[in-house]
Amino acid sequence: MARPFEETPGAGPNVPAGSDNPTSRPGAHDVPPEVARGKGIRHTRTGATWTGLVIGTLVLVLLLVFILQNLDGVVLELFAWEFTVPLGVTLLFAAIAGAVIVALVGSIRILQIRRAATRQRKLIS
């Protein structure tokens, strides 16, 4: 009868037989600990930037497709002016305006937190 937990030399007690234990693999002591634990290369800023660029490019392609599929004219009225603009462009402008408002509110909040942190540092020192 097979036992679910068997001791593997160098693995310690209560390690499932056949588990992916880094110390039970041949030559595991020759590799850095983070690789032996299966973590591989650490997260880098360059990798995050690359991921952001790829995701941003995909979003821009989707926006372009959306705008090209929604070219029907829409009449916009702002005070005394009247504009005829494609629907996709109108929605893009609305999304940009929303993003700018969120960025402004976030910037104001960041400034508040920085001022509070500066005051706190001055009180401590």
Rank of each mutant, 00 (worst) to 15 (best):
R37S: 10
R37N: 11
R37L: 13
G38T: 12
K39V: 03
K39S: 08
K39N: 08
K39F: 12
G40N: 10
R42N: 09
R42G: 13
H43A: 14
T44A: 09
T44M: 13
T44H: 12
T46H: 13
T46M: 13
G47P: 00
A48W: 06
A48H: 04
T49C: 14
T49E: 15
W50D: 07
G52A: 13
L53G: 03
V54P: 00
V54C: 05
I55C: 06
I55L: 15
I55G: 02
I55Y: 03
I55P: 00
G56Y: 06
L58Q: 07
V59S: 04
L60F: 03
V61Y: 01
V61N: 00
L62C: 05
L62K: 06
L63E: 03
V65Q: 00
F66N: 07
F66M: 08
I67H: 04
Q69L: 02
Q69C: 02
N70R: 06
N70G: 01
L71F: 03
L71M: 13
D72Q: 15
D72R: 15
V74C: 14
V74S: 15
V75P: 08
V75M: 10
L76P: 11
L76A: 14
E77C: 08
L78K: 06
L78N: 10
F79E: 15
A80I: 11
A80Y: 06
W81G: 11
W81Q: 09
W81A: 14
E82R: 15
F83A: 07
F83S: 03
V85K: 09
P86M: 08
P86K: 14
G88H: 01
V89W: 11
T90C: 14
L92W: 01
F93S: 10
A94R: 02
A94N: 03
